[in-house]
Nucleic acid binder design. Sequence first.
RNA 1: CGGGGAGUGGCGCAGUGGAAGCGCGCCUGCUUUGGGAGCAGGAGGUCGCGGGUUCGACCCCCGCCUCCCCGACCA
Length: 571
Amino acid sequence: MRASQFYIKTTREAPLEAETISHKYLTRASFIQQIAAGIFSIMPLGWRSLEKIRHIIREEMNNAGALEVTMPVVQPRSIWEESGRADTYVPPLARFSDRRDRDMVLAPTHEETVSIMGRYGITSYRDMPLRLYQIQTKFRDETRSRGGLLRVREFEMKDAYSFDADDAGLDASYDAMAEAYHNIFSRCGLDAVMVEADSGSIGGKDSAEFALLAASGEDSVLICDSDCCGYGANLEKAEFVKSPNASEDPGELEKFATPGVKTIAALAELEDVSSAKTAKAVFYAIDDQVYVVVIRGDYEVNETKLRNMMGGSEPRFATPKEVESAGFVPGSASAIGVDSAYVIADDSVVENANLLAGANEDGHHYRNSNYGRDWSADHVGDIAAAAEGCKCARCPDGHLESHRGIEVGHIFKLRTVYSEAMNVKFNDVNGRLQPSYMGCYGIGTGRLLAAAVEANHDERGMMLPKSIAPFEVVLVGVNLHNNEEVRETAESLYGQLTKAGIDTLFDDREEAAGVKFADADLIGMPVRAVVSPRSIQNGGVEIKHREQAPSDSRICSASEAVDAIEALLGG
RNA sequence: CGGGGAGUGGCGCAGUGGAAGCGCGCCUGCUUUGGGAGCAGGAGGUCGCGGGUUCGACCCCCGCCUCCCCGACCA
């Protein structure tokens, strides 16, 4: 492609609203253009990168036995009523009425339509496995979009769905997809880690997300630092082994004055002990019932674990009013002596003796509170959030490292949630009607591109991996328009590169050399070849990799340039 | 939805109750060509929208819209 025939309009400055690196670079390099909050157009350069991503995805999906389809973005609301998600989907469905006043929605995902597609033809266990995928636009009316393409409202996603006759089949489909995902990310040059994830309120048993570790990520991911177990999970899901306090005999419950002490940190400091020697009480409302949640002072509550333990309803912080009317004194709260309270306890407070706890009296706490003797709970379990340094639950020596990650893919075992609701049923070997076992598998293509930029850039611009860069090579001509030898050499090299099947951008614009170099760095093609009076004087063509400094470039003769460039590209 | 910030040429920004400016970009010509060039001449703005105050509003007042950041939320 000749740059003079293409649409490249780079800018020196990014728009005011761009804050993340990927947003700035993708905008400055004219890959994307913002139209509204969380809504973008894709420009020719961005399109090329996305097209390469799509191509890789298609190949891997096809290899995994999935068939490509397209399902509508605009859907009748009635099918969402059938699945039961018309009113429960969060964020809210974007709705509108058509001219006949029918209720329509913009699809945020496609379980409903794929279920309809599946039930059309799946009548026997012999019809499965069936794996379908599409690369399609979604619209989610997020309460807040952010970070350029990292989190948007309208976006393109590859979503795949599997139908199987039983759990074993679902496991096989899920594993096939997980393998395809590993291949996709690796072929995109991205080091994405697969970590366990919570399956969310939609149910299902297993779920995993693929995260690209990057400081700008929204996700917290915990990964075991030991080589032996490979355990990783996102913050919502992460398990860990709690470190017990030194065991001691129960002491006598003793109330003491703690004027002005409102926090665990202050309490621990006053008594000169670790916060692990305290019991912390926090207040949640679940289905409008107020609970006091008691956890050891050095841990935080994991609301997802809490939700799952309590049956799936979303917990929220209780209001001060609710806390008071339940009989608690914030700052000095505990479950001790509040008989009417609903109590949830993390196992960390159950197993450790002689903790400092609130006395439910302003300015007072207890020493030596012990579970079972001084108070008890209605529910006990693991509701603690894992954090950096916690002991790994899967291996003896490992500890968890905390990372920020960008969620670029997510796979779920849905099982029969949708097939029951949407009536995707088949006759099994015994002739009995069974719901199909479904899975769903998503990759955000735009987010993948943005994540790749977040993970691969320097101060001059993007450094996209060759498999997804808009071009593999940029051929810069300097003095093309007034130097016959330069022009002939460059044109000839461009022809050879094209013939060799190397995706080349030939910068034949009438721009100053500095402009072309700056653009090449910003767009970040993996290899740069320069033909100029100087390079010819030095023996031919100057080549360098994007990751090399200009001073590390080298000269090769025009005849060996294609081979040298291929070598630099690496395979 | 709560908190904070911002809307002035394509982009980044300044600005004053009395004739809308600067840098970059853009157009023409000439000169240039190794890190976003030089000279000269040009084009381009409903100062977010609607009301109000005023002889006069980009500026002051009221209402609204939009965008960004933090939080909440995120099958």
